[in-house]
Computed example of a mutant assay.
Amino acid sequence: MSQTKFKLVECPRDAMQGLHDFVPTELKSAYLNLLLQVGFDTLDFGSFVSPKAIPQMADTAEVLSKLNLTYTSTKLLAIVANLRGVDEAVKHEQIHYLGFPFSISETFQQRNTNSSIAQSINTVEEMLTLCHKNNKKAVVYLSMGFGNPYGDEWSYEIVEKWADVLVEKGVEILSLADTVGVSTPEKISDILPKLISKFNHTEIGIHLHSTPAERFEKIEAAYKSGVKRIDAALKGFGGCPMAADDLTGNIATEDVIGFLNSKGENLNLNMDKWNEAMALSGKIFG
């Protein structure tokens, strides 16, 4: 086993974004400040997107101003969906990563970012330029990476084709995203090793959604595939409000932590702060 440190990405933004009731800014900030003390590699904390599309994230800039980054090595990631969001996000020195959801499904790209795949490639190019100028890194999510419930054509070759295009453009971190929970352990075991092997100079991550019953099998399949970057959310909350009416939740962080600990991975997490965050999550998610 290589000694590359495992990167665990905690995703409170993904967990919260579909909640119907607005979570007060102070409560969001308190929750994120606890998560920042746990010791995750990255915190997907907010997004600079239209407040009409995702009202829950309208206060991302204000939340950011309330985060205490003095005693944490955790890097902040913000999601953007267009160039207006990129322009806004790069202004903030505290943000390390900008994440862009690039769907290999034309239907879902329109639904999620109100733009075509061709327009999204242009957005990625502009984002890479602005990230470079502002000392940020881009993370591009290959959304619909495991299948397409919208009727557009899907195959591993299509996934690989778009990964090729994005890597050619200069993307250094690709996260294969299962936005609607259609991945299976078999698909993960088939697709991930091929991508990791082909793009061996690119950091390949995974962002899975799952029903609770399938979580462990999917985590195990991803781990055995050699992935070193996994997105998860405390208690498996959340999902993409643009994807479906019945949200398929995120992979639960505690399941990933338990699994990786059982494999002897040293995650170096402050579990006291984790337990505090778990307790506070009840006030947010009910």
Rank of each mutant, 00 (worst) to 15 (best):
V182F: 00
D178M: 06
L247V: 10
A177Y: 07
T184L: 04
A163V: 13
A213F: 06
D255H: 14
D178T: 04
G258M: 11
S225P: 03
V171E: 06
F216E: 12
I158R: 15
I191E: 08
W274F: 15
K187A: 09
G264L: 14
K273L: 14
T202K: 07
P185Y: 04
G258Q: 11
L166V: 08
G239P: 10
I230G: 00
K263S: 05
S225G: 09
E186V: 09
P212W: 00
H207R: 08
I188R: 08
L208R: 00
T211S: 15
P212C: 07
A222E: 01
K263I: 05
D190R: 13
V159N: 08
A177L: 09
T253Q: 09
D245W: 06
H201L: 09
R229I: 10
E160G: 02
R215F: 03
D272A: 14
G181D: 06
G151A: 05
K228P: 03
Y150D: 09
L195T: 07
L234D: 05
L208I: 00
S189C: 03
N270Q: 05
T179P: 05
C240S: 05
D255V: 09
K263L: 09
G205C: 01
V180S: 11
S197E: 12
F216S: 07
N266F: 09
S175L: 06
S225F: 10
A222K: 01
K187Q: 10
K228D: 06
A177T: 01
E153M: 12
A252F: 02
K194V: 13
N270P: 04
I196K: 07
I158F: 09
S210P: 07
Y156G: 02
E217L: 12
W154D: 07
W154S: 02
S183N: 08
W274S: 01
I188V: 01
F216T: 11
E168T: 15
N200R: 12
G238N: 13
D152I: 06
G264Q: 13
